[in-house]
Nucleic acid binder design. Structure first.
Lengths: 232, 232
DNA sequence: TCGCTATGGTCAACTGCGTTGGCATAAGAT
DNA sequence: ATCTTATGCCAACGCAGTTGACCATAGCGA
């Protein structure tokens, strides 16, 4: 029973699995991301992951304490993807907007994985880097420490909140997805005007509107608020 | 096998379970909410619910097509709680603010349940009532139909998004919760200033700040935006 | 180059999950 | 009082995460 998991840096021996592949944290996370994309957010199971990597499910416990820790590693990988290649421009508003859209985008581009990780604190390298970047931009904008903390909170939570929501609807298992879509078509479009006049009125406009994310609009509103604070 | 589920209104015979309790959709949902609160968002299982109701797990399939449909019913109950006793004041801004805080509050007061339902479209009675209420307020404010749809989208998604995020951190299973808290204490408070100067700077302020929800601030910003549109 | 050791892959088994098909029984219509 | 059938119960299926015991071998010191 692998109560002890050797950290990736300390790992010395890379014994190939029966079929010849050599495991690593990175390979496992990448394979997990693939499985999530292919089988939905409930489709990542230890057994399936073992099958995909051609190793025994229990082997995974040599790398992660359990599926939960694997989840955190996946989340950190997503944040890493969001930040890859980014560097501050010096204009706080552009930087914050870009960071927000990048983080939101990274999660939304892996919706099945995002569902599992958006609300978790990983404490791993990439998450720390992202937080440091946001704080640096805010501080560089000239905001006092006290406000930096408040704005950081609103900014990061808004980004993660929308990422979670948008990812969730993109990642619904096929059955639920169809059920929800059907709901829009069957229920909302047929609501009797007598009991729900306003829904009936906008029903045709609603379906196309709800497809896009509301995050960009909400983000701009928040940045407006920050700008107001700065010019005060 | 119960491929057919009799809807609650059509249900005629109320045969008591072996132990004497008489089942109903409402009783099942209430018990499910209790289980969720007591055992966490992963703690609602058909078997446990059967145990709590003192009936066989399979009996639940006479009331819901599966655990997913039960989930939707739970979500709709939460929205119902949010709206109970509310009536429009006539001031659109107050009304929208109250609706937002009520919906957000209802979810957050049942975080373990909220996690399962925030991103689902139930199409049930209470959800329809809530949507109708929001649309009515916006229309009453004098917004043209086109804008009503856009604002409705931003408003409802931001509310649900924050509800989901806030609920998620409140609802983490004990193990993960402790893991995340530990992360804040062990990792964030000990980040070396050399590599992450800005995190180190605000670390002491961060922990208390992150406890509260950022939703009220974000809501007010959104309402500012709507007000601007109206006065244009 | 040789052997030792502990790393890390494998196997088998445990518990608990959602769900289903068949069956029994009593509620409500007649 | 009788009949139908809605509704509760039981047993079983396949799949999940996780664990403990076992063992092959990679990489070390000599």
């Amino acid at each position: 029973m692998p109560k002890i998991v050797v950290s990736e840096e300390k790992r010395r021996r890379r014994r190939p699995t029966r079929s010849g592949t050599v495991l690593s944290e990175q390979l496992i996370v990448e394979t997990a991301l693939r499985l999530l994309r292919e089988h939905g957010s409930a489709g990542l199971t230890a057994r399936r992951l073992g099958l995909a990597l051609d190793c025994d499910p229990s082997t995974l416990y040599r790398y992660f304490r359990g599926m939960d820790e694997l989840t955190l590693a996946i989340g950190d990988t997503l944040i890493g993807q969001a930040l890859r290649g980014w560097s501050p421009s010096g204009n706080w508003r552009d930087d914050l907007r870009t960071l927000g859209l990048r983080i939101h985008g990274a999660y939304v581009s892996h919706p099945q994985a995002a569902v599992l990780t958006t609300s978790r604190v990983t404490g791993r390298a990439n998450e720390l880097a992202a937080d440091e970047a946001v704080l640096a931009v805010l501080r560089g904008a000239g905001l006092p420490v006290r406000d930096v903390v408040a704005v950081y909170h609103a900014f990061i939570d808004q980004t993660l909140a929308f990422a979670a929501l948008d990812a969730a609807s993109l990642a619904l298992p096929n059955a639920a997805l169809r059920s929800d879509e059907e709901m829009w078509q069957s229920t909302y479009r047929r609501v009797p005007a007598a009991t729900h006049p306003h829904i009936a009125e906008v029903a045709p406009l609603l379906a196309p509107e709800m497809v896009d994310s509301a995050y960009p609009k909400a983000l701009d509103l928040l940045l407006d608020g920050v700008a107001a604070r700065l010019s005060r």
